[in-house]
Design a protein around this nucleic acid. Structure first.
Lengths: 363, 363
DNA sequence: TTCGAAAATGTCACCGGTGTCAATCCTAAT
DNA sequence: ATTAGGATTGACACCGGTGACATTTTCGAA
């Protein structure tokens, strides 16, 4: 819709105001314009853009001045073509929780703010046999700068191996040490489980149940192990019939809780492996005619927004998801910055006590 | 990490198996390879890729065969550079609800599946004065193919004007006719409000309140207008003191509901402008000692997942958000496909009756 | 059979950068 | 003053496509 064709012959000295003022608005300036005005080769300008140390300070300053004056920004497409590497950060996920996904996204975007990188979404379905191939083809075609893999994609070892072959950097977010080494964000889910267990034990509960996630998730085991560890410290054990799977879903949580409550000696407290299942437990507990927390205490995990919106509000374990996303992106971007060493950043969860837990009542 | 340098002299006939088998795995083939093997100019290959009608059927078939054999896929970066337009679809949003955002994303991704386009996220903050400028700069730098603007960004007229100036296509998702013409996905929020009103009226409620969103959102007015229209059909009116703003947030919903319940004659039923506020109303109602739905009926809007997880489950108005996202992306992509006519797709919400509404009880 | 317009295809520069390697500039050592 | 070797800078091809326009076919009409 725009057809402003302005002559290209008069550049020697920049039009003092016009250039300064409009520069920001029209993204026309190219590396060639900068080179011409700065009276250097475009290659040198390129060096400045890429912060090559082999440019004399004086030259660098001069070029930077011109860049600023023109409001020049290098074209990501062209750069991507020339290097064989783009400016996209791919988020490869397969996570049922919108809350988790959105927070990871926010975190990544926080870190990407101000950089040239863009976040592209690449959901996948680990169940499909060609899922690794799809990701490979995505990489080949779009040459993303790097990938971020939150759980449970992060636990996919075949994928990690394939990624090592391919020409991409990636950072994984997981709750355990993974077989394939790589940079990663690690969460100590076990500590969270322990915190939950300790909280309930401290309140005086002796008869506690656990609704856990799918066995295929490493976090399931981490959380449970931490939980049992804490109980053990108080001399309690998690009876096998008091541990039920809830699939990390709301419906699964309802079913699991119903199962627990149907036992001859129902638990006084339930630690659910995530908030979704805890929410399901609320429903089952209420349907069964019990009160929360008077009759039964419930603890969740994740501190999703729903936790604060339930009534009574859910006591849960909080993981700083957004910060983790941000850390993951930061880790990914610092490739160039000196240390090539695979790095690891650890996050610990903390318990958020709200209204769904109380000392065991008289029942 | 890969250094396979294979000679470029022997291409006449492709290595029968190697090419066919590995082709998919290594993305090395370029348009030049295809051109050479098909014995045509790269430009003709380009024509085939872009489905130009000016290629003889026979030639086209031959080229397509070679493309398939080589597993060739055009490089998005190079294409983006040459045309001055990329393959990114930007989702520009400023929406507090993760649920909404994730569903829109899913819908868009559904539509993008199988295309060369990628979804990039571009959250923004309408409150910031430079927010339009930021988006402009994003467009200039990354030259996205198009943008999708869900509410409330879609209602930003200054932005729409700026976008018309810029070289981008965009599709807006909104609940009303907007001043600036453009392709859009329209939701009839008014009908949803009406459905809510009719439902409550049909149940026999005569004393009904409304918690609405911020006045700056067009949807706020649409929903309320539809609601009042339905009440009017039954001879009811929404008393001014029974309409309170809840800011579309949970906390706002709590406060608004508390305000309503504190009146000398509290309502029998509450229609909240979205599920967030409805959830807040649950809390306020319970705190005040009322039961749902026996004492007070509640209706929400949006049918977010939380609606089904509350107890009792929330009666709400459902908008097919994911489908809307998909439709928006489809609309955006069909630019080339024939009709340039600005198009409009309309979606109607439907009420989902669950456990939070019942005939007014004896109080 | 001939001719002209439409249909197909090719040529070549260019999009806006980066990689490679040669050329030039300095500065300290001889 | 001369010179070697590192510090800077430039020349030029190339990344993998597309646009504008030239050239060659093709084919029905004359």
């Amino acid at each position: 819709m725009k057809h402003e064709a302005d002559p290209e012959d008069a550049e020697p000295s920049s039009s003092p105001q016009a250039a300064g003022g409009e520069a920001v608005l029209r993204g026309k300036a190219t590396i060639n314009d900068v080179a011409r005005l700065a009276k250097v080769s475009k290659k040198t300008v390129s060096r400045v853009i890429n912060e090559s140390p082999f440019v004399k300070q004086k030259t660098r300053d001069a070029i930077k001045a011109v860049i600023a004056e023109l409001g020049f920004t290098p074209d990501p497409q062209a750069r991507a073509l020339a290097r064989r590497k783009g400016f996209l950060i791919g988020l490869v996920y397969d996570n049922p929780s919108p809350q988790y996904v959105v927070n990871i996204q926010r975190g990544i975007l926080d870190a990407l703010e101000g950089t040239d990188f863009q976040l592209v979404l690449h959901p996948c379905d680990r169940a499909k046999p060609d899922h690794v191939a799809r990701i490979q083809s995505f990489i080949q075609q779009h040459k993303p700068f790097g990938l971020i893999l939150p759980p449970s994609v992060s636990e996919d070892e075949p994928l990690a191996l394939a990624l090592n072959e391919a020409d991409v950097d990636y950072v994984r977010i997981a709750s355990v040490e993974l077989d394939t080494p790589s940079r990663m964000i690690r969460t100590l889910d076990g500590d969270g489980g322990a915190a939950a267990g300790r909280h309930l034990a401290d309140l005086g509960h002796r008869h506690i149940a656990h609704i856990h996630g799918p066995l295929s998730f490493r976090s399931t085991h981490e959380r449970r192990a931490g939980f049992e560890r804490a109980l053990a410290e108080t001399g309690l054990v998690l009876r096998p019939d008091m541990a039920v799977e809830g699939g990390y879903t709301f419906e699964g949580g309802v079913a699991a809780a119903e199962h627990l409550l149907a036992q001859s000696n129902p638990p006084q407290a339930i630690f659910a492996g995530n908030d979704e299942m805890a929410t399901g437990a609320y429903v089952a507990v209420r349907r069964a005619g019990f009160r929360i927390p008077e009759d039964i205490s419930i603890v969740g995990f994740d501190d999703t927004p729903i936790a604060g919106r339930l009534w009574p509000a859910l006591t849960t374990v909080r993981l700083p998801i957004r910060e983790m996303g941000s850390a993951a992106a930061t880790l990914l971007l610092q490739t160039a910055d000196g240390m090539t060493a695979k790095k690891l950043i650890t996050f610990s969860p903390e318990i958020v006590v709200r209204g769904s837990t109380a000392a065991p009542g008289t029942r």
